[in-house]
Write a protein that binds this DNA or RNA. Structure first.
Length: 562
RNA sequence: UGCGGGGUGGAGCAGUUGGUAGCUCGCCGGGCUCAUAACCCGGAGGUCGUAGGUUCGAGUCCUACCCCCGCUACCA
């Protein structure tokens, strides 16, 4: 494995609060991966920040009588705080339109656009589009309502029939109305846009994707290859809105237009990397060490909705632009729904209660971030959608995390005869040594799972070792030999303590807070562990004060205040 | 219509290149008492969505079909 990695998590759109689905999809797995790589001794840059441009923020602002800048900065700050509360180890959390980053980001995005333009990969096309005369703006199809031109019997949005799901032409809507007050009837105007000729990249994209067979998840690969098989359409990379990055062309048709958010958002990964290089006292151009060096793998963690952009459009942009590496891996997770009373629901701003613990901000007011990290990894939507269930959360916390891991640590470290010190292991048995070897094996296996992005399997392996530790004490019964064979009892306990030391390593990528508490209880310095089997602590090594590692939750704890 | 994902014991999930189906939780029975009523041992429970096919042998490959979900948007 290489020594240097660039890891990104999808840029959250800054017009909403974060919920557990976001975290389980694009952030937590990435954080686990990064923590593991660092523990292994590799050099990692972990890049994230908010996606601040685009029509959705512009319209949110319009609806709440704020400026787009106010909207995106407000949510950028809240999201950043949520991530910090969850322990996300980003090296930088930028924002494509935040004051500290916008200048560099705009410049790099415009340069990117220009290079693609100069190489002839865009085509300019004229189209007709609905225009809201009151707001003096073009309306995305989603922001127009009217009578469905197919069924002719109901109101629908301008993009899709709500009854049949069929795609409709917004220009064909009968009696169209803007969805923006005062709901003016839109007029049709002509406009010009620059389209990326994706079809030119079908073959290189297919070859590139096929080279990933066996290492990428089938959901990403098959989806992307399926799209190519159907033929990639041209996609407009410019928009008729004002909140975004001006199109950097002299062409009069470019006046007043901005880059499509999905054009500039992935460039955010690059511009934030450059910003980080500057923050660390280097040069902006140092970002090339991470983006242009084939020995540095780039891994994008995303939610399933971003697959088309990260597996097709962004790679095509990179091919068109020609100066950067393609992603080494695109790790996509499915969505997480919310189960309430046995019923599955989507998590949404309008329907999910504002004080529900599925909102990270709400969760963190009452509970331990690591319990959430545990649960979200246990239900990781790696191959299919899963559900966040508050009762299941409490059950897993109490019956798995607390019972197997927390309780094991507690039953060993509170053992009376220890007197705060690591006892002698001189009477260790073969069984004890074998157990220690199993801990080392677990560290290896978990590492392999994480490298393959199998986080659920990795966590299972961690918990399997915790259970093995319980089994080991159960068989050794140091409480029975305490009086008649103290050396044997002590050796068993020393082995258990060594097991806890292994657990402190194993748990670190998943639950950094738990790992830190374990190290404190073991009397170890407060520094991140190395990903290797720890040497046994010397006899007499002073232990820290034992404490409850993970609190047990009352049934219904998560539903009570939410 | 097209593309993609999923359909495995009560629940949640694993099942890499085909070889009598595993894990966690829950449940039942027993044990232990160091421990956050935690832990350990044993047990019951599945004809792997349906119907065919290939094979000595298929959850695992092929065909058809059914169900759920997403995409098929100028929404991030």
């Amino acid at each position: 494995m290489p020594k240097r990695h660039l890891v990104t998590s999808a840029l959250p759109y800054s017009n909403n609060r974060l919920h557990v689905g976001h975290v389980a999809g694009a952030y937590l797995p990435a954080d686990i991966y990064v923590r593991y790589l660092r523990a292994r001794g590799d050099e990692v840059l972990f890049i994230c920040g908010s996606d601040d441009n685009g029509v959705a923020i512009e319209i949110s602002a319009l609806q709440t009588a704020q400026t787009p800048q106010e909207v995106c900065t407000f949510y950028n700050q809240r999201q950043k705080a949520d991530f910090a509360g969850l322990g996300m180890a980003f090296d930088i959390y930028g924002g494509t339109h935040q004051p500290q980053y916008v200048k560099l980001h705009n410049r790099m995005s415009q340069e990117f656009f220009r290079r693609i333009h100069d190489k002839g990969h865009f085509v300019k096309r004229r189209t007709r589009q609905l225009y809201d005369g009151h707001h003096q703006r073009f309306l995305p199809d989603r922001y127009v309502r009217g009578t469905c031109p197919l069924c002719r019997d109901h109101e629908t949005y301008g993009d899709q029939c709500e009854k049949t799901g069929a795609v409709i032409d917004a220009l064909a809507l009968i009696k169209p109305r803007s969805t923006l007050p005062p709901y003016a009837a839109p007029e049709v105007r002509e406009t010009a846009h620059w389209y990326l000729r994706l079809n030119e990249f079908e073959r290189p994209l297919r070859e590139w994707l096929e080279s990933k067979q066996g290492s990428w998840r089938p959901s990403v690969l098959n989806f992307a290859l399926g799209q190519i098989r159907q033929g990639l359409p041209e996609r407009a990379m410019t928009r008729d809105i004002s909140w975004g990055i001006p199109v950097p062309l002299d062409d009069p048709d470019a006046a007043g237009k901005v880059l499509y958010v999905w054009f500039d958002a992935p460039i955010g990964y690059v511009s934030f990397t450059a910003a980080l290089c500057v923050q660390r006292g280097g040069d902006e151009q140092d970002y090339r060490q991470w983006w242009c060096d084939p020995a540095t793998p780039i891994t994008h963690f995303i939610g399933e909705d971003n697959t088309v952009f990260h597996a097709l459009i962004w790679p095509a942009m990179l091919m068109a632009e020609g100066q950067h590496q393609l992603p080494s891996a695109v790790v996509a997770n499915q969505f997480v729904n919310f189960r309430v009373g046995g019923e599955l629901r989507k998590i949404s701003k309008s329907e999910t209660p504002q004080d529900s613990p599925v909102w990270i901000e709400e969760y963190l007011k009452h509970f331990d971030p690591d319990a959430l990290r545990y649960y979200l990894t246990a239900i990781a939507p790696e191959t299919a959608r899963t559900a966040f269930d508050t009762d299941d959360f409490v059950a897993r916390n109490n019956n798995e995390l607390v019972a197997a891991l927390g309780n094991f640590v507690n039953r060993v470290l509170t053992f009376k005869s220890l007197e705060g010190r690591v006892p002698s292991r001189s009477a260790q048995t073969d069984f004890d040594r074998q157990h220690v070897a199993r801990g080392a094996e677990a560290i290896e296996k978990v590492g392999r799972h994480i490298e393959a992005h199998r986080y659920k399997a990795a966590l299972d392996e961690v918990m399997a070792f915790a259970r093995l530790c319980n089994e080991h004490v159960g068989i050794r019964e140091p409480w029975k030999t305490r009086k008649d064979n103290p050396p044997d009892s002590f050796a068993a306990l020393a082995t258990c303590i060594h097991g806890i030391h292994h657990l402190a390593v194993l748990v670190h990528p998943f639950m950094p807070g738990v790992a830190q508490r374990l190290r404190a209880m073991l009397g170890l310095p407060d520094e991140p562990p190395r990903w290797q089997a720890p040497a046994p602590l010397a006899e007499g090594h002073p232990l820290g004060p034992p404490a409850i590692l993970i609190p047990k939750l009352e049934p219904g704890a998560l539903t009570a205040g939410a």
